[in-house]
Simulated assay, not measured.
Amino acid sequence: MTSAYCHRTSCSLVKILCDCTAFLVWRVQDPKLLSWDTAITMEGIVTMYQDFMKKADPRIADYPLMQSPFLVMGILLGYVYFVLSLGPRLMANRKPLNLKKFMVLYNFFLVGLSLYIVYEFLMAGWLTGYTWRCDPVDFSQDPKALRMVSVAWLFVFSKFIELTDTVIFVLRKKNEQVTFLHLFHHSVLPWSWWWGAKFGPGGMGSFHAMINSMVHVVMYFYYGLSAAGPAFQKYLWWKKHITAIQLAQFVIVSVHISQYYFMPNCQYQFPIFIHLIWIYGTIFFILFSNFWYQSYTKGKRLPRVAQQAAQHNGSSIHENGTVTNGKVKAN
């Protein structure tokens, strides 16, 4: 009946699917043949993977986490499982942990690390020879090229350190802060940048990593002050401007990477990275724009200074961000 339907239809896609289905049914009828074909297929997949990984940059092969993508995949899957399932269940009958001192040290450590990463990106190429237009990856043993490899790896490693952000949310039972945007951002970026550093550490594809590190200097400085206690709350009026800086980041990165499409002859070796960076920039701009609208236009995530001002005006703001007895506008 399947074969008859395939001959009647004029849709080539349907015919292909039908033929594939008939082929699989035929294979299943002979278990020995299926087992042999499966072994050949798996062997072919392994061979293809090994051949593909031979094209990776050998200069970064001995850096931690860079030997195999499966270790990285395991870490990220474990991270997602912990923050969505295991962590909340472990904390269900426990009091939130008091991590204030740790959070201050952690956030200011990331400020220093992000500053160092920005400096290294600048010294490895962006202020010492890059044109800020079509900049290919330098695969030589030149000291600047090796310096770029090191900072590309350090950026990747910093993304795994930043997974601690979400772990802190869970341990403090702030599960409402584990949003889709937060989880998507923290899980996708380490994975995609691992491949970028593995195959093309440097060149025009590294621009967005440098800009991202600049933004993180500001972001983690704010978080550090926020964790430092009530004495610093009066300095936190600029919370929504962090989101504005993040939005500007995606615009700058997308404009820079879009140059590739208008250059008659750009020898950057990995066009796929260009496409992914542009797609990421667009997706994250949309997601962060929605975050801005929900948080500040609708007033769901006002800075604490604004919340206190609202309370003095007779409004009451609950911990989950809802407002009663009046409306509060973002600063």
Rank of each mutant, 00 (worst) to 15 (best):
V104M: 03
L99F: 13
M123Q: 11
L110Y: 09
L86W: 15
D135I: 06
R147P: 01
L127Q: 13
M91F: 13
A152L: 01
R147K: 15
D142Q: 10
S140K: 12
M148F: 12
M91R: 10
Y119F: 14
D135K: 08
L99S: 05
F108W: 08
R147T: 02
S158V: 04
V156S: 08
F108R: 09
G129E: 08
F157T: 03
M103N: 14
G112S: 12
K144A: 14
L113Q: 05
R94Q: 14
F155W: 10
A124K: 09
V83C: 01
F109E: 11
Y119W: 11
Q141A: 13
L105Q: 09
D165N: 06
P88H: 07
D135P: 01
R89Y: 12
L90F: 15
Y130P: 02
I161Q: 08
L113V: 10
R147W: 06
R133V: 07
V137G: 02
L122G: 11
K101H: 15
K159W: 00
A92C: 09
M123A: 10
C134V: 07
Y81F: 14
V137W: 03
N98G: 10
K159D: 05
L146I: 04
V149A: 10
E120W: 03
L115G: 15
M148D: 04
A124R: 05
Y106G: 01
N98C: 13
V137N: 07
L110R: 06
F139R: 03
P136N: 02
E162D: 09
T128M: 15
I117T: 05
K101I: 14
L163K: 08
V104T: 08
V149Q: 10
S150I: 05
D165A: 06
Y81M: 12
N107Q: 07
A92H: 11
L154I: 07
A152P: 03
G87K: 05
Q141G: 09
L97W: 14
E162L: 09
Y79E: 07
Y119Q: 11
M148L: 08
V111D: 04
P143G: 12
C134E: 02
F82Y: 15
K144S: 06
T164E: 07
V104R: 02
F155K: 01
V156M: 09
S114R: 08
G87L: 08
Y119E: 11
A145W: 15
D135G: 01
K95E: 14
G87F: 13
V80W: 14
P143V: 12
D165P: 04
N93I: 13
L86P: 02
G125E: 00
F160Q: 03
L110G: 03
Y130G: 00
P143T: 09
V149N: 05
G112I: 12
F157M: 05
F82D: 02
V83W: 01
Y79W: 04
G125D: 00
